[in-house]
Design a protein around this nucleic acid. Structure first.
Length: 462
RNA sequence: GGCGGCGUGGCCGAGCGGUUAGGCAGGGGCCUGCAAAGCCCCGUACUCCGGUUCGAAUCCGGACGCCGCCUCCA
């Protein structure tokens, strides 16, 4: 069973499931006010890997991830571009899914949208108001954090300590600077919804509480997201749930940051900013490999150098897949251990990799094992031990598939003129006409092909 | 001010007291008509200063440097 670092406990602990055999997980999704960036990509990849691994392990996973479609930045953008908030959200939600699909991330089972849950948020706020945990001000409704005894358990600091550090500008009507907005009173040029406590729009922290509890029920197993959401977003979500008597999530997990070296992320510096740009310019699997290659809680550095490093690694894996004609696993479908049969030798590898991944998602450790296995399979094949090699290769590709990394073995479409060159080269080589063979190879190479003669017949690839 | 993290070989990146992480790049070899791919071998790293220990990258103390959170953020 997976052991994961729990952000409240501050230690790695086993994921204790509410219902045996079933995992309910909620991952805070994006606010669709712009193009998805590298940080969005990382969280989506990390939790996709987690979901896949749990599924591989035989668990029935329900994965929920929301779209925030009402928020300050969306309103600001809509105003700036003189179009509706709905139009902005539609555009960037479209971009979001394009990027998700390109990264080979499986779609969530449920994708709740904040605007579809406003009446339920209103009911939650009413409940909080009725018990005086929430209070009204001239600009909305606020949550009184002092009413939650263990407020700060996610921040890792007691309330007093947080309060001492709060960056001032005391909002007159708030009881504490840490109190957060549940509801923002309507303004004439902003979208608003009716409510018994005055029309307006929901604050960000309320939507995820309502949506996660609605779709997964109280005491769901895992609530995950980027490290930056730990405080105050997740703290505040939890505070609301606890305040109305729920247990909320049993386990909290957070992935680390994306860095771009010491340089500020910007196009002018030739750093990738948006996922959309990254995916347009690189192998779309490179980012997944980069994410898998470091621990999910460590910061990762995404630069041209680290991405191209990953791309070259992928070439090695693709060459491997080609050599053994391995099927492309991963992508939108899930792999399950139970769907595969492993010989005892290969079962040992599966066990070792499983132990790595079950240990707080040690993907770097798992990859090290898999790369070793790739070398082993190649070596076996070199020695002519083809059955063993093939079986190992199939196991390796299944395990890559288990974390969503698809190896490509499919030959590219090759046009007839190029095929003719390859045939001519085979003729020349049979005739030991090396000058002609070399000339034809140069021609193919100039056309962008990589030429390999390994099996007697020439094989070309891009 | 409070809380937390990090500093590893050319680059990336694991490591949680003793054994080769792994990848990429580089060097040598095997294979090959020559290449490519593949395989084998190689670099002998851990910010600094003390300490604990038979033994420390790994534990403790200190120094220096970098970063994050306490405010919208994946």
């Amino acid at each position: 069973m997976l052991r994961l670092f729990d952000s409240v406990a501050g230690e790695v602990r086993e994921l204790e499931l509410r219902d045996p055999g079933k995992v309910s997980m909620y991952v805070c999704g994006p606010t669709v006010s712009g193009l998805p960036h590298l940080g969005h990509g990382r969280f989506a990849l990390v939790w996709d890997v987690t979901r896949r691994w749990l599924t591989w392990s035989g668990l029935d996973v329900t994965y929920v991830s929301n779209i925030t479609d009402i928020e300050d930045k969306i309103i600001a953008r809509a105003r700036e571009e003189q179009r509706s908030e709905v139009a902005v959200c539609e555009e960037f939600e479209g971009e979001w899914w394009k990027a998700i699909d390109a990264l080979g991330i499986a779609r969530p089972d449920h994708v709740p949208h904040a605007t579809h849950y406003v009446p339920q948020m209103v009911r939650l706020i009413e409940e909080l108001l009725s018990s005086d945990i929430a209070y009204r001000t001239s600009d909305g409704v606020y949550f009184d954090v002092s009413r939650v005894p263990d407020y700060g358990c996610l921040a890792g600091q007691p309330l007093d300590s947080l309060r001492a550090g709060a960056r001032v500008e005391g909002h007159d009507e708030k009881r504490s600077p840490l109190d957060f907005a549940l509801w923002k009173a309507a303004k004439s040029d902003e979208p608003s919804w009716p409510a018994s406590f005055g029309s307006g729009r929901p604050g960000w922290h309320t939507e995820c509480v309502v949506m996660s509890l609605d779709l997964l029920g109280d005491g769901f197993d895992l609530h995950a997201g980027g490290l930056d959401l730990k405080f105050p977003h997740h703290e505040n979500e939890r505070a609301q749930a606890v305040a109305v008597g729920d247990k909320f999530a049993r386990h909290w997990a957070h992935n680390g940051w994306v860095m771009v070296g010491s340089e500020k992320m910007s196009k002018s510096l030739n750093n990738f900013t948006s996922l959309t740009d990254l995916l347009a310019e690189t192998d779309q699997r490179a980012y997944r490999l980069l994410v898998l290659r470091s621990h999910y809680r460590s910061p990762i550095d995404v630069t041209k150098a680290t991405i191209s490093d990953a791309e070259r690694s992928l070439e090695r894996l693709d060459t491997f897949a080609r050599r053994f004609s391995l099927p492309p696993l991963g992508g939108p479908r899930f792999e399950r251990a139970a769907d595969h049969e492993f010989s005892s030798d290969n079962a040992a590898l599966v066990t070792l990799v499983s132990e790595r991944l079950d240990d707080d998602l040690d993907t770097p450790g798992a990859l090290a094992l898999l790369f070793d296995a790739v070398s082993q399979a190649n070596a076996l094949s070199d020695q002519g031990r083809n059955e063993e090699a093939q079986a190992l290769a199939v196991t390796v590709t299944a395990l890559f598939g288990a974390v969503g990394l698809t190896l490509r073995s499919r030959a590219e479409d090759i046009d007839e003129a190029t095929r003719a060159l390859v045939r001519a080269r085979n003729e020349a080589r049979r005739a030991k006409n090396w000058a002609e063979a070399d000339r034809l190879r140069d021609e193919l190479v100039t056309a962008g092909w990589i030429v390999e003669d390994a099996t007697g017949e020439t094989v070309i690839r891009r």
